[in-house]
Amino acid sequence: MDSSRRSVLKFFGLTALGLAAKPVFNAFAGEHGKSAMHFEKGAEALKAKQWAMVIDTRKFESPDELEPIIEACNKAHNIPRFENKNHEIKWIWETEYHNAFPQMPNRFLSEEAEQRPYLVLCNHCENPPCCRACPTQATFKRESDGIVIMDFHRCIGCRFCMAACPFGSRSFNFRDPRPFIPELNHDYPTRMKGVVEKCNFCAERLAKGLEPACVEASGGAIVFGDLYDPESEVRKLLRENYTIRRKQSLGTEPCVYYIV
C-alpha cells in the first residue's frame, strides 16, 4: 500500500516536473536553428501600416451597381447562400443611409444622397471592441497592417465579438455552410459550423499583391490604401473630399471612409 502510494506520488511529481520543464526546453530549442516551418509574405505582397478604404458613394445610383461588388466578395470567400434569414452570412452588403449611419439621421437630406445605396462591411477599426471581447484571441488586430482578422480554428463560437461589434459586421455559422456555397473557390478556405466570420480586407489577396476583390470590382468607386502614408491614394481622397465614418463617436476609429 505504502509503496504503491509512493509510486503514484512519484508519477505525479515527475509529470508535474516534465510539464514545468517543457517551456524551458522549448526556449532552448528555439535558440538553435530555425523551426522547420517558416512563413513570410511574398515579395509582391502589398504592405501598409494600416489599411483603409474610401468608398465614393456618389458613384453608385442603384443597388444593381453594388451587386457585382458584393458578388465578387461572396465568390472569393465562399460565402454560403441561405434561405433562412437567421443563418445569413454577410461580409459586405448593401443598406440604406439611415441604417449605415443611424446616428446621423439628418432630416430633409438631399434626396439623391438619401436614396443612394450604401455598402457596409467590417471597418477594421483601429480600436476594435471585438478583439477586446474575444476570450481566445481568435480575432485580433494584425500588427503588420492593422487588419482585424479571424483564426477560424481557434474560435470557440461564443459570439462575444458579435455583441461587441457596433456595426453588425460579424456573422456566425449557425449551420454547416459548405452545402450552401454556390460556387466553390479553392483558393480560400470554407468554414465549419459554430465559428464567427467577417470581412478580412482580402488579406489573402493582399499577400499575393492583389487589391481586395470589392475594390477590383468597383471600377474605381472604392479606393484602398495605407492610412498612414500621406502619399497614398486613400489619403489623397481624404484630403480632397469631405468624408464621414460610421459611428465615429464611439471611438473605435473605423478605417472605412465614405464620401457622401
Binding site: 434569414k85 453588425g168 449551420r175 459550423k193 459554430g194
Partner: peptide
Amino acid sequence: FGLGITGMSR
C-alpha cells in the same frame, strides 16, 4: 446541426 436549431440569428 449547429446552433441553427435555436431562434438566434445574426
